[in-house]
Design a protein around this nucleic acid. Sequence first.
DNA 1: GAGCGGTGTTCGTCAAGATGAACGTATCGA
DNA 2: TCGATACGTTCATCTTGACGAACACCGCTC
Lengths: 184, 184
Amino acid sequence: MNDGPPLAVIAASLQHERRRAGLSLAEVARRAGIAKSTLSQLESGTGNPSVETLWALGVALDVPFSHLVEPPRPSVQIIRAGEGPRVASERADYVATLLASCPPNARRDIYVITAEPGPPRESAPHMPGVVEHVVLCAGRARVGVADEPVELSPGDYVSYPGDAAHVFEAMESDTSAVLVSEHV
Amino acid sequence: MNDGPPLAVIAASLQHERRRAGLSLAEVARRAGIAKSTLSQLESGTGNPSVETLWALGVALDVPFSHLVEPPRPSVQIIRAGEGPRVASERADYVATLLASCPPNARRDIYVITAEPGPPRESAPHMPGVVEHVVLCAGRARVGVADEPVELSPGDYVSYPGDAAHVFEAMESDTSAVLVSEHV
DNA sequence: GAGCGGTGTTCGTCAAGATGAACGTATCGA
DNA sequence: TCGATACGTTCATCTTGACGAACACCGCTC
């Protein structure tokens, strides 16, 4: 995938996160239970911290650990309603438009779902660890794991494991929703 | 957030990923450029690897590194419209409801935005690397970077870097949107 | 200006991780 | 049966990360 240089990235991330939190080097070191000299060396790019050390720093800075080792990247993009790659269901009147596919690193896809009443859209289990988030925008729908879907009204939100069979069944016409599929 | 025990998790992940790839311990060690004895110890839970070591293993196993330290985890959760923690704007008629806060590992927050016409909701730049995704559900709004926001209609999608000043300005009443803030 | 509390740095010491050789075992083919 | 190759483990050795004291620096108060 990438041979990203963890060393410099970690150094930058640590200092950046610390500054953001408005904490001193000594304070962070104290919270993390490590020597401030260690932190100093890490922020200066000198060092190859152990997992325990890095983890402690992640906790102290209240960042999920991965932030410290994986770099960023922005951009602007717009997809108008009706545009974009679509994924239609064979059986149900259901269209999913892929808005933001998983850029290697941030593992999640964002879709807009439009569906009409009819047979439910049933999805086979995905990869283990997948979690799906659905926010209903308009209409009504029964969403969730196949066994016991939840009925959603506009504004409702539900998340469920995607590695089990799950369904999306529109109960009114012009039902639409936003779906975030998280590959964890 | 949590003081998750990275030790045992890493041990399990390493062995799991290796088995999945159908590789031998020696082979993985060779590809990663580390001693197989080191790998053996890590898989047995004895050890606190350095970042370089773990990174090399991540490359060898072709997994994004985070997978090795953060375990999966499903669950079902539902938040009804109007429920959930809210973040209201001081100046604009704007309410953001936090649906799924960043569980250490998946770096993203999911919000539902409800806003009324009026002064635009202006957000100061966030962390570098933050990307925001907005899908408009109802109404109309001007969304995006402060310099040149984009006008959205229902179903439209836009993403923009969150580390620059950005705005959300409702142009009709009952404007609502889903916002995914990606911490990359 | 002397004293204090705060910053982040450098350096000697020690424990801990990484190493490579040697080991015990299992499978294969001559 | 006897090598030969591969597996994963254990062990003595060496390297290296983590520690803590000492350091230089800055701003503040008295």
